[in-house]
């Protein structure tokens, strides 16, 4: 198993957190992982992104030139990384704010209305989690339960009450990708 994913969007959309949750979930399932953030001035206003590698072997280079999946939360991220995705790779587009379709015909593309899903759930902050739900359902690289475990680990006891809405967001995101959560 080898997932090499780029999560990208505006600073504040929770793209670094999405990657961390995935890396933590994969670690819980016993895989080797590496999480590498972009950092610097580009986080202010432009795109923020992180690279997540999940492998059954020790992770050699954590730098991802050609992702197996791209999770694009905004249009600049789609523009920046779309062409780098491997042939037959997966592309997750936040259709709430990205109006265009992919220009590639060799990808599995998923259009997820993240903001609408989150607003419907009454918690706009979980838009990223809805997208993560779509990603996890489509790639099946970790289970929903491992993502919940990772969320629990990240949120701690004090914010435990936020787990149900996050779980709901994961499922709605999965449904939007045309998948049912395993």
């Amino acid at each position: 198993m080898l997932e090499r994913d780029i999560f990208a969007g505006f600073g504040g959309q929770g793209v670094l957190l999405m990657g961390q949750l995935l890396a933590q979930a994969a670690l819980f399932e016993g895989h080797n992982v590496a999480w590498l953030p972009s950092y610097g001035p580009e986080m202010r206003g432009g795109t923020a992104n992180c690279s997540v590698t999940i492998s059954d072997k020790p992770v050699a280079s954590p730098i991802i030139e050609h992702p197996t999946s791209l999770i694009a939360m905004n249009a600049p991220s789609l523009d920046k990384f779309e062409q780098a995705i491997i042939p037959q790779g997966k592309l997750f587009i936040n259709s709430s704010i990205i109006s265009r379709k992919t220009t590639r015909d060799d990808l599995d593309a998923f259009y997820i209305p993240c903001t609408e899903i989150a607003v419907e759930l009454g918690q706009p902050k979980v838009a990223n989690i809805a997208m993560l739900g779509a990603y996890v359902a489509a790639t099946k690289c970790v289970s929903e339960e491992s993502i919940i475990d990772a969320l629990q680990h990240k949120l701690g006891e004090r914010k435990k009450h936020l787990i149900p809405v996050n779980r709901e967001a994961l499922r709605k995101g999965a449904e939007a990708a045309g998948m049912v959560m395993k």
């Binding site: 992982v33 590496a34 999480w35 590498l36 953030p37 954590p62 730098i63």
Partner: peptide, 10 residues
């Protein structure tokens, strides 16, 4: 270097 410093690994 910056990558070792900013990267998360198990």
């Amino acid at each position: 270097d910056g990558l070792i410093g900013q990267m998360m690994e198990p």
